[in-house]
């Protein structure tokens, strides 16, 4: 393999990994805190892309993309918190909450996807690129938009990590996820933190959707495939720490990029699922995981 091909595979893998990291972080945030699996996460991804398109596309509002991204984050936060109140909270106190929320979040996902179809129609759309042009050294090409994407994703992940670690609401969120009863006895508003977590998770999913929308064509079902990958990432890496799905995301991204090159586009998911099954057999708590869920 020549170095230029190798470079472009690794580059593709890292970009994929960054997107998966963003999606998996939101997914594991909800899993570790609320103890439920949010099947509407994929719909959040698509929703984020469409909302950003509405704000920033030249044939819609036409705002600058940076402004569109900020506005999208706010909208996604509100929608995430709202869906928590409608899809999760009514069942929170039942012992079978995990199973029930599988159904309710799946329903929410279907409703959101069809809402996208009704509002924006089935025609593929694309969000304007974050930047034109590319960096070319010899045969190596690196688009400016890819650099911006990597920097932004890194900044968002570091920001979320710092928020959880250093801010008071972030610490309270971790406390709530680690011991709900003890958090209540300290007077923490547990339902509010749950809504906050779902809001935050929706923001990260939505932003992942925006980035996907700038590099690929978008359609209302665009979230389901990334959701599957995010699921693989979460299982692969485990959720012991905030950072474990992030490492796993880059490993999966690179693995996918290399499998696409070596075994082809259609067999790449098979390789990923096979890897996931092997991990489940050998280390079911995930590569970086422990037998507990904490934040």
């Amino acid at each position: 393999m020549d170095p230029v091909t190798l470079f472009s595979i690794i580059k593709g893998g890292i970009v994929l990994g960054a997107l998966y990291a963003l999606m998996a972080t939101g997914l594991s945030l909800v899993w570790t805190t609320l103890g439920i699996f949010n099947f509407a996460h994929g719909a959040f991804i698509a929703l984020g892309a469409y909302v950003a398109w509405q704000f920033s596309a030249t044939d819609a509002f036409g705002w600058p993309l940076a402004l569109g991204i900020i506005a999208t984050s706010l909208v996604m936060f509100a929608i995430g918190a709202f869906l928590h109140l409608t899809l999760v909270k009514p069942f929170e106190r039942r012992s079978d909450v995990v199973l029930i929320t599988v159904i309710t979040t799946l329903a929410g996902s279907a409703i959101l996807e069809n809402l996208l179809l009704v509002i924006w129609g089935p025609r593929s759309k694309q969000i304007p690129k974050m930047a034109e042009g590319e960096l070319a050294i010899g045969g190596f090409h690196l688009a400016f938009s890819e650099i911006i994407l990597l920097v932004l994703v890194l900044a968002i992940l570091v920001g979320v990590g710092a928020f959880l670690r250093y801010s008071r609401p972030g610490r309270a969120m971790r406390a709530v996820s680690q011991n709900r009863e003890a958090a209540q006895l300290l007077g923490l508003n547990v339902p509010m933190y749950f809504a906050l977590v779902l809001g935050l998770s929706a923001v990260t999913a939505g932003l992942a959707g925006v980035f996907i929308g700038t590099i690929r064509f978008m359609n209302p079902a665009m979230g389901s495939e990334p959701l599957m990958k995010a699921l693989i990432v979460v299982i692969f890496g485990g959720v012991a720490r905030f950072s474990s799905p992030i490492y796993a995301a880059f490993i999966i991204g690179l693995l996918e990029a290399f499998s696409i090159y070596f075994v082809g586009l259609y067999w790449a998911p098979a390789v990923l699922f096979f890897t996931m099954i092997v991990v489940l057999l050998i280390k079911p708590e995930g590569l970086f995981g422990k037998y507990q869920r904490t934040l």
Partner: peptide, 23 residues
Amino acid sequence: VQQGNLLFPELTVAETLSISTTA
């Protein structure tokens, strides 16, 4: 103050006490 309270296993003592003024 609960019996055998495990509190928040992954939080440090300082972090735990910093959110203990909520009530």
